[in-house]
Amino acid sequence: MTTNKDAFRDYLQLEKKYSPHTLTAYCNDIASFEFFNKIHFEEDIIDQVGYDHIRSWIVSLVGEGVSNSSVNRKIASLKAFYKFLLKTKQIQISPLLKHKALKTSRILQIPFSEKEVFNVLDQVQNAIGFEELRNKLIIDLLYTTGMRRAELIQLQLANVDILNKSIKVLGKRSKERILPVLPIIADQFSLYLKERALLVTIVDADFFFLTKRGLKINNSVVYRLINSYFSTVSEKVKKSPHIVRHTFATHLLNNGADLNSVKELLGHSSLASTQIYTHSSLSKIKNIYKDAHPRGRK
């Protein structure tokens, strides 16, 4: 079994190009199911279990209060594992062949308004010193590029092209894309880099965004930063880097950007992923439709 799990991890990392975060999540889910089987069924070979074992795990997870969406994510990890075993001809049929995902309710992601964003930007307008300039740049870069939090954290110093006003980011499944940056952001790069160069110690020199100790910033630093600033201007429940990304897409669509362009900027593999942002623009779409259609003007 150890060989199967190791081979599966290699498959996800080398062939599927999954990120370290996704890789860890998949492997943890499989280990969790393996542990469940050992405890409840004294079975430690999960590539030979049936759907009854999986169903028992699902019932146990739900009973512990795990949300349906989280359960579905865990089962998706198992499904990927069994798909790998099928691909490598180690099993002939997946025990999840007829499994149906648990029903979930889509949580409406409410973007920030333009006023809220500009109120935050007003707060950091006169930023000075390393941390203030870094924070301002992070907020502005997330809002003007729509990049993911993970992409911002992993941004390499060598991939920031101030002269050509662009950055290269590494998205999901190690897919690279070039993002344009506004001239005002390129100017901020220069100011930040001057302060960055003055740090006493730089440990993670290859990464663009650092802490004052010279270490690469992490998820919690970016989340706390966004949550802190936007909490002063917004009463929305969720105030996270993902909501800023959602805001970026919504504001572009509201101001006439076409869906395909937004898709490319966000790094989505299909339009279906981008279309979730169109609901926020529905009122504007209705007004355009009403003004443009001959029957709407009567």
Results as ranks from 00 to 15, higher is better:
T3G: 08
D6N: 15
A7T: 07
F8D: 06
L14V: 11
T22L: 04
T24M: 15
S32N: 13
H40E: 08
H40C: 00
I45M: 11
I45E: 15
I45D: 15
D47R: 00
G50A: 09
Y51M: 10
R55C: 07
I58A: 11
V59S: 15
S67D: 10
N68L: 05
V71Q: 13
K74D: 02
K79D: 09
L85D: 07
K87R: 14
K89H: 13
T104I: 12
I110E: 11
E114W: 05
E114C: 01
E116L: 11
F118G: 00
V120N: 06
N126A: 10
L133N: 10
R134K: 13
D140E: 15
Y143R: 06
L163M: 11
N164P: 00
N164A: 05
K165P: 00
K165M: 09
I167K: 05
I167F: 04
K168Y: 00
G171F: 05
K175S: 03
P180E: 00
P183G: 05
I184Y: 05
D187I: 09
Y192L: 02
I202T: 12
A205M: 02
A205V: 14
G214W: 06
N219I: 01
F230Y: 07
E235V: 13
K236G: 08
K236R: 11
F248V: 02
L252Y: 02
N254G: 02
G256D: 04
D258W: 02
L259Y: 04
K263N: 09
K263A: 05
E264H: 14
L265S: 08
G267N: 08
H268P: 04
A272Q: 14
S273A: 15
S280E: 14
S280C: 13
I288S: 07
I288M: 10
Y289T: 00
D291P: 03
A292P: 01
R297E: 04
K298R: 12
